[in-house]
């Protein structure tokens, strides 16, 4: 069996427009299998818990920081509590408009977060994480 090289994506952002932009840009790369967007991080968490993830290619999660109901940091904390058998199928990126030093430093405290990305998502910074 030839493993597929295309990634799955999960976008978590309370801004509808930002979800839309991310979805379009990701689809435009032609390197994605699917994009699922959530405006409420709690729904994304539920999805990850119950969804059977692709075990061959990591699913890339892009999560915003400042969101109502559940912030990006709260999401990451909950995500890290999940069993390794689930989390190992995902690669986590934090994407934000924040230029606050506390937020940027806080990102480094989470082992599961691979990198911090600045908004807006564009083909250039997307290319970096697809390498």
């Amino acid at each position: 069996m030839v493993p597929t090289k295309k990634n799955h994506f999960i976008i978590i952002d309370d801004s509808k427009l930002d979800c839309f932009i991310a979805e379009k840009i990701i689809k435009n790369t032609g390197k994605c299998e699917s994009v699922t967007a959530f405006q409420d991080a709690r729904n994304a968490l539920e999805f990850i818990k119950t969804h059977h993830a692709d075990e061959h290619v990591p699913t890339i999660i892009l999560v915003d920081i400042q969101m109502p109901l559940m912030t990006g940091f709260e999401f990451v904390e909950e995500f890290e509590k999940l069993p390794m058998t689930i989390t190992c199928n995902y690669t986590l990126y934090v994407i934000s408009s924040s230029i606050n030093d506390n937020d940027l430093n806080k990102v480094h405290n989470y082992a599961s977060v691979k990198q911090f990305l600045n908004k807006p998502l564009n083909s250039n910074n997307l290319a970096i994480l697809l390498q």
């Binding site: 801004s15 427009l17 930002d18 839309f20 932009i21 920081i65 400042q66 408009s97 924040s98 230029i99 606050n100 908004k119 807006p120 998502l121 564009n122």
Partner: peptide, 14 residues
């Protein structure tokens, strides 16, 4: 940074 910059960056991205 979130409430002023957020929508602005959205528009730039769009």
């Amino acid at each position: 940074t979130h409430d002023l910059r957020g929508p602005l960056l959205s528009v730039i991205g769009a």
